[in-house]
Write a protein that binds this DNA or RNA. Structure first.
Length: 428
RNA sequence: GUGGUCGUAGCUCAGUUGGUUAGAGCGCCAGGUUGUGGCCCUGGAGGUCGGGGGUUCAAGACCCCUCGAUCACCCCA
């Protein structure tokens, strides 16, 4: 046993899949399958992949996500080197927006649809479905204020889940209003809550000062009770935002997408305005948030743009998606099978194996052979384990005659095949 | 960051109130089959009982610390 272990909250993805003591990590082929499906759906939405660095300037994340958010204030892997401050990206919307501005993608005219899949890092206490290195995928539609962009974003996320066979989730939707209606609502909320302040938890009391809207997100039953009659954001948002929200809902309805209008839905990142949504698994428990997103028209300004660059997007967690697939038994991807496994007996045959395997591989066959010089029986067992379609058996006799024994492992039948006809025999 | 639970072979786990050389199933390896996988039979390898310290004549079992996992809080994807 090695004395080194992967860092807490991180995990290896292996060909066979394994458990971390409780949580199970899917085989790499399941991840590949999920990624391939995501790419396919993204392409259906006209999106192309963007890959940004894992390392970003700390300031970008702090400004983008918000200094007072939990992510920035206590969950970043950040370090200093020379006179630069680095972070391991905790999310990728801010980096995508940074890249958009850095490369002047607005100058290409039109709307950019960018998707990503990759690792993110947050220094949270690990638990099921929550890791310190985790993987997000998401879509950002940049350059459009049209409500169809918002609806498109939500539909895209939903399509990813549907394409994988998941149906067990709920969409929650809200509008956060614009930069003027939010402060007004904030004031009203503070005015409403302040009289009860001493009945709140310490966390909520702190939020009253720093980020009062996050209090709406509380899971404490008593606090929810106190919030029953709290002013609603929907009563404060500006007319344009309200109309925008109605349009978004209209588009969702037009494609038969069901959602729950949730006036208490607030996202934990500061950059959202107007549309905010979350997709929650109905069966995953505490870490059931599959995807979240919304409109973030003001992020561009926060990152130094001279004018508003309207944008919407969603981000989703790969771990939770795969957890949900597992729970629904939708993650059984069969291991690939070999076309042929070459069993060699004797030194001459061992030597013969190598170029033959190469020439078959060059013709597109998946070919394996034993590398441990084991017995015929052991080699056969290995072929069986690797689920090879055929086994090619060659010993001194076959080398002399130029004719191999080829066994069909499914039929358990065996025929003699001249070396020159091996490839054509495998095609059958 | 806070609280609860757990940590024995590669995996899943058993291990009586502390008491000799720590077990099972699966997996792995070998043999039964002088050149044929899966099923069956036989045998074998594999464990500093997460790590460190302590109590005791004696600790896998008890105590403390630590690390890890896990569930919840929190957070969010």
């Amino acid at each position: 046993m090695s004395s080194f272990k992967s860092i807490s909250g991180t995990f290896d993805i292996l060909p066979e899949g394994h458990t971390t003591g409780g949580d199970s990590i899917a085989p790499s082929r399941v991840w590949q399958y999920v990624e391939a499906t995501i790419r396919k759906v993204m392409e259906a939405y006209g999106a192309e992949e963007i890959r940004t660095p894992i390392l970003e300037p700390t300031e970008l994340i702090a400004r983008g996500i918000g200094q007072l958010t939990d992510i920035v204030s206590k969950e970043m892997f950040a370090f200093e080197r020379g006179d630069t401050n680095y972070v391991l990206r905790p999310e990728v919307t801010a980096p995508v927006m940074r890249a958009y501005q850095q490369h002047h993608l607005d100058q290409k005219g039109g709307v950019q649809r960018l998707y990503y899949i990759g690792p993110c890092f947050r220094a949270e206490r690990p638990q099921k479905g929550r890791y310190r290195q985790f993987h997000q995928f998401g879509l950002e539609i940049i350059g459009a204020t049209d409500a169809r962009a918002d609806a498109d974003t939500i539909a895209c996320a939903v399509d990813v889940y549907r394409a994988l066979g998941l149906t067990d989730f709920t969409i929650r939707l809200n509008s956060l209003g614009d930069s003027e209606s939010r402060p007004r609502y904030k004031d009203a909320l503070i005015a409403y809550i302040t009289p009860f302040a001493d009945q709140l938890s310490e966390i909520s009391r702190n939020r009253l000062q720093t980020n009062p809207m996050r209090i709406l997100d509380t899971k404490i039953e008593k606090e929810r009770e106190l919030l029953k009659n709290a002013p609603l954001l929907s009563d404060f948002i500006d007319e344009e935002s309200r109309q925008h929200h109605e349009e978004v809902k209209g588009y969702l309805t037009s494609i038969g997408l069901k959602y729950v209008d949730d006036p208490f839905l607030v996202r934990g990142l500061d950059y959202y305005s107007r549309t905010a949504f979350e997709i929650e698994s109905d069966s995953l428990g505490a870490q059931g948030s599959l995807a979240g997103g919304g409109r973030y028209d003001l992020l561009s300004l926060e990152l130094g743009a001279k004018q508003v660059i309207p944008a919407v997007g969603f981000a989703a967690g790969m771990e939770r998606l795969i957890m949900a697939l597992d729970a629904a038994n939708l993650a059984d991807i069969p291991a690939p099978r070999l076309d042929a496994f070459i069993v060699a007996l004797g030194d001459a045959a061992l030597t013969w194996t190598f170029p033959v395997a190469q020439s078959l591989r060059a013709k597109g066959f998946k070919v394996g052979y034993d590398l441990k010089g084991r017995s015929l029986k052991a080699q056969m067992r290995e072929a069986s384990r690797q689920n090879s379609r055929y086994v090619i058996i060659v010993g001194d006799d076959e080398l002399a005659s130029g004719v191999a024994e080829v066994k069909d492992m499914d039929q358990s039948s065996q025929t003699s095949v001249p070396f020159a006809q091996l490839a054509s025999h495998l095609t059958k």
